[in-house]
């Protein structure tokens, strides 16, 4: 998935959330990590974006762990880009 394809998705707007922490983690991931996702991982990312903000925050800050292995995997990838 190249930059142009990413821009034609609604990822960037779906990553505008009610909390700064989510904005930073998710937008950073769209810039740095989305390009390399497999189709299955992209589907898991889209499912993750449909979660309520508070649930997302708990998952992405490591306060909760998803029992869905694909969501777990995408959360791990997002957290791995968080220092940038």
């Amino acid at each position: 998935m190249n930059k142009k394809e990413i821009n034609s998705t609604n990822y960037r707007w779906q990553c505008r959330r009610g909390m700064l922490e989510l904005d930073l983690l998710l937008n950073n991931f769209v810039d740095l990590g989305v390009e390399t996702l497999t189709t299955e991982q992209r589907q898991a990312f889209e499912l993750l974006l449909s979660y309520p903000d508070q649930t997302l925050l708990d998952l992405l800050l490591g306060n909760a762990v998803s029992s869905d292995p694909e969501i777990f995997d995408v959360v791990r990838l997002i957290r791995s880009t968080s220092f940038n």
Binding site: R16, R17, G18, M19, L20, D53
Partner: peptide, 12 residues
């Protein structure tokens, strides 16, 4: 709303 309503900043 420019974002989905439950993504408004009140959530924070």
């Amino acid at each position: 709303s420019k974002v989905f309503p439950t993504r408004s900043h009140t959530v924070a």
